[in-house]
Nucleic acid binder design. Structure first.
Lengths: 94, 94
DNA sequence: TTGACAGGCAAGTCAATGCTTGCCTGTTGT
DNA sequence: ACAACAGGCAAGCATTGACTTGCCTGTCAA
């Protein structure tokens, strides 16, 4: 579970999540070019690939193979319990 | 805003948030002993102090001076918008 | 079949960061 | 006043982690 927090710590990985949330099922090359164009991320293909490994390990990204392509999409479920962890003392009522 | 994610990336800092959420307004020494006793965190006083600096910079912890004591309490507001960032494609309806 | 393409693996480099050590400032109680 | 206590500052060390480089595997189209 700590993997989720570590995965979110890097701004490039957050940009990857942003981009993949905006456009699902991108290939690695497509993701790289869109990261460069729309998020000012100038990382190499290998760097992006390694970031995605971290996101996959954290359970935030799922992959699907199709021939020589590999598609990735965001799984936001691990995020849903993050904020709740320290909101126990929230004021009751609306 | 990226400071919040970076602050949450370290397990010791998450333990500090846990402990401070459980018992508000602790001094540094009190926090250290409780971290050791209840969270198996064996960090020195200076290490804990530096972690708290990171949490303060992220806006997750507020401090209040009272004489030679300094009390700290969690401000969970920066966390409330974290999860929402990547939940845009959530299924609609309940 | 073979060359081009999508992606993966592994070692090495370099900067960020968690932690320690030693010393200093300010406050309180006797 | 002064000793004990709560906390802060700064330099140094060691680990983590992001990124690059070079090469390899597997797939598709001409």
């Amino acid at each position: 579970m700590g993997d989720v927090f570590r995965a979110l710590a890097d701004p490039t990985r957050r940009a990857i999540l942003d981009e993949q949330t905006d456009r699902d099922d991108q290939t690695l090359f497509e993701l790289c070019s869109r990261l460069a164009a729309r998020h000012r991320v100038a990382s190499s293909r290998q760097a992006v690939s390694q970031h995605i490994d971290v996101l996959v390990d954290a359970g935030l990204v799922k992959t699907r193979r199709d021939g020589r392509y590999k598609f990735r999409h965001v799984d936001p479920r691990p995020l849903e319990r993050i904020a709740d962890r320290w909101l126990q003392r929230r004021k009751e009522g609306p």
